[in-house]
Structures are given as structure tokens and as C-alpha cells.
Design a protein around this nucleic acid. Structure first.
Lengths: 160, 160
DNA sequence: TCCAATTCAATTGTGTACAATCTAAATACG
DNA sequence: CGTATTTAGATTGTACACAATTGAATTGGA
């Protein structure tokens, strides 16, 4: 219906401002909501591992390459030290990583995996598969969506 | 240390575990990183309005329809009262919304826009356009990505 | 050489996010 | 009626997330 009449209607709702401020037309909100929903879907899968979702991402980064500095982790995950420092301390307290000052350059802190941290990789192996089932998306669509998002991320980083 | 195999090539990186735990192969991480980058891109645009990014989303929802209950806002934005209550108190303190107990049902709190809150919509009008430029994506790709994400969100809500 | 600029991580302060719990209000139901 | 259940928000506790600042370590010049 879209009462596009030039009525000076004030109270009811958005109208004159057009659709471009509608929540459902915002890519940003679709991204925000989807990201939140996916994070929530991971929670029950990660709880048995003793990890939160951001902690899981940090562990993924470390399983791929360790030891790494806080800085390198931040670049890989797009996070800064204000976020990572307390998170890594919690992972250290949980026994999954160690934090050591680099002897070469005392400003750096190297994050390494403990035995328990390494061992956790086996248990985490089932997580992506379990989640992929919940997504209810065919594999080729998952790949395409992921590629599009990585593309977007790359462009935004370049433009910043 | 890595006594498990006699191959001396243990240290470098993930390998046997396969690619399915690689960060770059995770849709969840692509979503997480893209969402964070977009949020960050909004920040400088929203700062002159006196809004954070989640506050902006709440205002979008209210510009579309107000007054609304906290519950209704939570459903629209996929957020719960533990997040919304303090956020709405800050918006109230900023003078953009009012919070009123519903006389019909005293459990409900109605969130309405103030004059300042209504007026902010005009200033916010430029935000989506300004951001669309930064995205460096053609409009049809934006629409397609948005549709895919909304699809994903719908499926995940249905499966939960 | 010496010191200014840079770099790295930690800290501080503000603002989300959510689970679990709590309270009051409304509804169901016997 | 009167109580059990459900519902709406608020509160509490834990965990991100980032801007701004700090402080120590390194680097780059003049």
C-alpha cells in the first residue's frame, strides 16, 4: 500500500523518508543479525570444549600457525590488543595457551599452544561439520557467500 | 614435544587436520569479520549523530514504527532485554526516546521517540548512502548479498 | 651517540551481548 | 475465586569490542 500520498501524516510511521532507512533494506543489519545468529548457534557446540566463540576463532588461528604474537593474531582476526589481551589471559588460565615475552624483542608477547590446546583441535574437528548441517545451506552456496563476504572485507580494508 | 611422528616436519602448521579448520574456510569467520568491519565503517558516520552502531539500529527500528515495546524491539533486532535495557536508558539519557510503563499491561515498557529522536531521522538520511559508497559494491550485488543473509537468518531461526 | 619517533602490549573507560535469576503483573485453570 | 503458570523487564555476572592512554622497548636519524 505504501500510502505515498503527500499527506502530512506525522505520527504513524516511516514513509516520506523512503525505504532507504528501513531495517530490512539495510545490508548492515542483515550482516549484524546473521552474524549474531551464527555466533549463537556455535555456543552450544563450543561449550563442551570450554571455549567461547571468539576464543574458538583465536584457537583456529593458532592451530593454523603457532606461536604467533598478539599483533599477528590481531591482524588475522581483525581485533586489537584491548580485546585480545584479556581473552588470551582467559585461554591461558584455561590451560590452552602460554604467553611469553619474546627474548628478541621484549615488546612482543608470543602466544603458543599447550598440549591441551593442541589436543583440543581433535575435539573441535566436528564443530564445523555440525554447524554446516544447521545452516541448511548447500555447500556451493556456503562457498559463494563466504567468497562474497571475504571480497567485501578485502574492499573495506583497502578503503580504510 | 611432537614426539608422535619421526617426521621432523611437525612445527610449521596445520596439515593433517585438513583444511576444514582453516580460518579462511570458515563461513562463520567471514561473517564475523565482515560484520565487524562494517560496524567500524559506520562509527565515524554515526558519531556526529551521537549514536553508536547498535543504537542506530534501534533508532532505525523506531523510525519505522513507534512506540514499540522492549519485547517488540528485541524481536525486530534479535536482542534480549539484558542488552536493550541499558542501551535504551542511554538513548533516553541522550534525549532521543522515552520509556513509559504501559497502562494496559504494567509489565510492558513502551519506547517512544522524542522530538529530537524524530528530528534525528533527517540527519541520518545520508548515512546509508555514504556507507554504500565505501562498500565499493554494485547495487545488485548488495541486494543479492543482503537477500542471501536474510535467507540464512530465516533458516537459522526456523531451525532453533 | 643520543634522543625523537615508532611500535607493541597492557590498561582504562564506555558500551554492547547474553545466560541466569529476580520481581511484578497478567493469565490459566481448577 | 485463589493459586499455578506464564510473561515482560530489570538485574547480575561474565565476556567481548574498541578508543584513548600509558609505558617500555626498539629504531631511525642528525
Amino acid at each position: 500500500m505504501t500510502t505515498k500520498t503527500k499527506t502530512k501524516t506525522q505520527a504513524p510511521a516511516a514513509k516520506a523518508a523512503g525505504d532507504h532507512l528501513r531495517l530490512d533494506n539495510q545490508l548492515c543489519f542483515a550482516l549484524y543479525a546473521a552474524s549474531g545468529l551464527v555466533t549463537r548457534a556455535y555456543r552450544p557446540l563450543l561449550e563442551p570444549l570450554g571455549l567461547t566463540y571468539p576464543q574458538y576463532l583465536v584457537m583456529l588461528a593458532l592451530w593454523e600457525q603457532a606461536p604467533r604474537t598478539v599483533k599477528a593474531l590481531g591482524q588475522a582476526l581483525e581485533l586489537d590488543s584491548g580485546t585480545l589481551t584479556p581473552l588470551l589471559k582467559r585461554l591461558e588460565a584455561a590451560g590452552f595457551v602460554t604467553r611469553t615475552r619474546d627474548a628478541e624483542d621484549e615488546r612482543r608477547v608470543q602466544i603458543a599452544l599447550t598440549q591441551a590446546g593442541e589436543a583440543l583441535r581433535e575435539k573441535a574437528g566436528v564443530v564445523p561439520t555440525a554447524l554446516a548441517c544447521q545452516l541448511q545451506l548447500p555447500l556451493d552456496e556456503i562457498v559463494e557467500l563466504r567468497t562474497t563476504l571475504q571480497d567485501l572485507a578485502r574492499k573495506m580494508k583497502a578503503a580504510s
